[in-house]
Amino acid sequence: MSRKLLEVDNLQVGISDDGVRTPIVNGISFQLNKGETLGIVGESGCGKSMTSLSLMGLLPPGVEWQDGDIHLHNLHFKDFKKKDWRKTRGKKLSMIFQEPMSSLNPVYPIGKQIIEMILNHEKISKKQARQRALQMLQLVGIPRPEQVLDEYPHQLSGGMRQRVMIAIALSCNPEILIADEPTTALDVTIQAQILELMKKLQVQMDMSIILITHDLGVVAEMCDRVIVMYAGEIIEESTIVELFDNPKHPYTKGLLESLPDINEQKEYLSSIPGMVPAPGDMPKGCRFAPRCSRVHDRCSQQPPLVTTESGSKVQCWLFED
């Protein structure tokens, strides 16, 4: 059996207005095992980034932790104070963001930003930290690392910036790397390089990865298990092969079928009608029901979370008993 490392237990985050709570992430539970890559997929706005920001203690102002907890070793994130987050961030969990330009500080040289991260967590000299920063840049395959240490983010290409982000995220040897759309802003040839790099470093550093993306091709490439989110909820969880060979939830099926297939020529693509509901305007019962081709009377009730024979989990009435 795989070893459980991180557990998210009924996490709810959202906004509240005059005491009225509107959840954005609506009570989700999942676990991350040691050494695995877990994918989180779903359409824009379904709560992928809010989930990962909760793990990092970086929820934006106005968005609050409403319920549930996250466990890592003997730590319970729900009770965390600022200083606990500081100790955990970078060291235990580290994150790569979608837009490297917005998370690299434009006014400091690359080297300074990596060194700062290292000195935050480790009692070593500045000189040693600089040495480590140099090694990190080499590790992620930056050409002329010595010079790049003293260069500024705007002097680097998109692919190089993303490598620098990875270097910063990995500089303190985190147990868990959270990558939120790490390659979405990049071209396919550069994307292939970065994904390859992440796989290599995962083995070298014995890391677990949570990979957030809306690209099912990237998921096929990278992940062991996958969580499918829809409108703030987890509607399916399964191994990667099971997800592609035997998707359960009508939404997951719809997503896979909407993809153009490079090996097959069809005149029209299948598509899911309608669009994702907004938080605060959620249908009662199953949130996918208004777009679902297999909708039924009972879908107006909250569907059960069913564990299927194959071990997948699916939140849908079709799989009851």
Partner: peptide, 14 residues
């Protein structure tokens, strides 16, 4: 656009 919406628009264009 998201995958499910992307296919709606491509079909329309076709």
């Amino acid at each position: 656009l998201d995958v499910s919406i992307q296919s709606q628009v491509l079909n329309l264009m076709k």
